[in-house]
Nucleic acid binder design. Structure first.
Length: 576
RNA sequence: GUCCCUGUAGCAUAACUGGAUAAUGCACUGGCCUCCUAAGCCGGAGACUCUGGGUUCGAAUCCCAGCGGGGGCACCA
């Protein structure tokens, strides 16, 4: 609809001047200003040396008067051109919705371009906590939104299964295992202390009995004191690898990784978040992609050696300073893997890359883009969306979240406490760059006033009407000839809101802002509830024609509620 | 110190990305169930959009300065 108006104005302007002008058509806030407004006259007034209202009058002359969707066109205020639509224009919306069904609102702006969205990608060193939930909900909703906008979306989780944190996890598990074997030891303060570590250790103990046992004194002999936490844990890693030997260490390491990854995957599935691919960081090393990325940068002359380390000249590409890729001890940095990962993404041929990162990764954006540029890629293909932290409160008390100390609140706990639908909705209700205060007590105690239930309830009420209709054995089929009976302001408001849906999808997708959809759905539910409760607006009435017209209307509303809720990952229940 | 995000009713957030009278929920308050689900509806009160300049026909939105909140500035991941 909006597109149609846009086309009419573009043609009208083309007849007034030769240049192509990018005009804006907007929904009006106030019904007295019509349905759509165009501000072209005010913007062009200066360059055309005319008064805005005079220019508006000339533009209107070139709007066809016989267009079936336009009732009238007016000039208002400083030079707005307001467009009023005909009833007929709105009636076609219902037919569109009922015909297209689940695909109503799908747009072609994506033009089948491929987009890869990488999100969550939490280290597999413990269960997901509530902070990860935000990235999960946001990423999944954004992926659905982009799909609806006509993009080919590929969702991916980058598994950091290499590196020191994983070794710390493996050692943590092994030490707990030794404890279960009856060894007496002091657990390193830098180790992972969550209960899940005990669980993994217990499973190892059940399966391998004491086969992996070493004496605590052998493990801790000559290990630097825990006063220097980093030194202490690093020494323990080396000692564990030495005592266990390659194969056994690998066994402990792999067990920890498998259990946690399986848990994360399960957790996300329960949260309604599924991926096309779980990409392993260590595969980058085994396929020599890291080395290849480094060689490519070397060949381009973007590296240098200093103090035994290999540096990438990131500062030459807009980063604050140069970055190390290969450490003095010969190991790749995390950054080196990251460059390789992005090289791999580029090679897979995606048109757009989207990374959803926590705000703490802010410093990484520039350097990754710098590396892409240095490798000859267009850094604009990569969009990094930073999601601010979610802070969890229980009443006034702010809860601490640290995977290391094990005192975090997990995503699973949150889901069990407030429910999947409410959690998904709350997470994306605000802009991603806005801080999120999540008060558990409020979410629980106020669950009846929850906006998500308000929207779902609208869907349920409609389902209930159709249940009633079936019970009465009454027949209904959409007949556009009856739509003329929809004359009240309540019915009109519903029609207007329903017609906005495709525009909302496009705007939300283009701005990467799923929260726009949550607000729209609340609007739609609001307009529906008002209609439903308005005097004289009962749906199942004797007047067949009006009844059928209203049934068409609410069937369309139900479809749009369903479509929108599906995109944000919330269920559309038949009964509540 | 520097870079990024941010400041809107008591609280939490919107504002079609520069448009017309700043919207929604919670909290507060007055009404509505012989009626398709009251997880609902109708009404009331509540805002100098942090401050001071600037750009514009028009600013919560853009620019500059200041004040407050969060985050980043590793041969950690």
């Amino acid at each position: 609809m909006k597109q149609h108006i846009h086309t009419l104005f573009t043609h009208a302007l083309a007849q007034l001047q030769s240049k192509d002008i990018d005009i804006q058509i907007e929904r009006t806030r106030d019904a007295r200003h019509g349905d759509f407004a165009c501000n072209a006259a005010m913007i062009l007034a200066k360059t055309m040396r005319m008064r805005p209202r005079d220019l508006a009058a000339r533009i209107i002359e070139h709007i066809p008067t016989d267009d079936p969707s336009i009732a009238k066109v007016e000039i208002a205020g400083p030079g707005f051109i307001n467009v009023f639509l005909t009833q007929q224009a709105y009636h076609t919306v219902i037919g569109d919705i009922l015909t297209a069904q689940a695909s109503y609102g799908r747009s072609q702006i994506g033009a089948e371009q491929s987009v890869m969205i990488e999100f969550v990608s939490a280290n597999p060193t413990g269960p997901l906590h509530v902070g990860h939930g935000r990235g999960a909900a946001y990423g999944a909703a954004l992926a659905n939104l982009l799909t609806a906008a006509g993009f080919n979306v590929h969702k991916e989780y980058y598994v950091n299964d290499a590196g020191r944190q994983m070794d710390i996890l493996a050692v943590s598990v092994w030490l707990r295992y030794l404890d279960l074997c009856g060894e007496t030891l002091t657990f390193p303060s830098n180790g992972y202390q969550g209960d899940y570590v005990w669980d993994i250790a217990a499973s190892l103990h059940r399966e391998h009995s004491e086969a992996l046992r070493q004496s605590a004194s052998a493990v801790f002999k000559n290990i630097p004191a825990d006063g220097d936490k980093e030194l202490h844990i690093d020494a323990l890693i080396k000692r564990s690898q030495h005592l266990l030997g390659e194969a056994s260490y690998r066994l402990v390491f792999q067990r920890a990784l498998d259990v946690i990854l399986k848990d994360i995957r399960h957790d996300l599935e329960q949260f309604g978040v599924v991926y096309e691919e779980w990409f392993s960081e260590s595969s980058l090393t085994s396929t020599h992609t890291v080395q290849r990325a480094i060689d490519q940068l070397k060949a381009g002359g973007h590296t240098y050696k200093q103090e035994g380390a290999l540096w990438f000249r990131a500062s030459a590409f807009g980063d604050e300073k140069d970055r190390v890729m290969v450490r003095e001890n010969g190991q790749f940095t995390y950054f080196a893997s990251d460059i390789a990962y992005h090289l791999n993404k580029l090679e897979r041929g995606f048109d757009h890359l989207i990374n959803i990162w926590g705000a703490d990764h802010h410093g990484y954006v520039q350097r990754v883009k710098a590396a892409m540029t240095a490798m000859g890629a267009d850094a604009k293909r990569l969009t990094v969306l930073l999601v601010q932290f979610a802070t969890l409160y229980r009443g006034k008390e702010r809860l601490q979240m640290s995977t290391r100390s094990g005192e975090f609140v997990t995503l699973r706990e949150l889901r069990e406490e407030v429910g999947r639908d409410a959690a998904r909705f709350f997470y994306i209700q605000r802009k991603s760059e806005q801080h999120l205060n999540f008060d558990l007590e409020l979410a629980k105690s106020n669950s009846k006033n929850n906006p998500v239930y308000y929207i779902q309830y609208a869907h349920t009420r409609i389902a209930s009407v159709f249940r009633e209709l079936r019970e009465k054995n009454q027949d209904w089929h959409h007949d556009k000839a009856t739509l003329g009976r929809l004359e009240s302001k309540y019915e009109q408001a519903l029609l207007v809101t329903l017609s906005r849906y495709p525009e909302v999808i496009e705007m939300a997708a283009q701005a990467y802002e799923p929260h726009q959809l949550t607000y729209y759905l609340h609007d739609l539910a609001d307009v529906f509830h008002t209609f439903y409760d308005a005097p004289g607006h009962k749906i199942l009435i004797e007047d067949n024609e009006l009844r059928n017209a209203r049934l068409s209307l609410i069937a369309a509303a139900q479809q749009v509620l369903h479509n929108g809720l599906t995109i944000i990952g919330v269920s559309a229940p038949e009964v509540m």
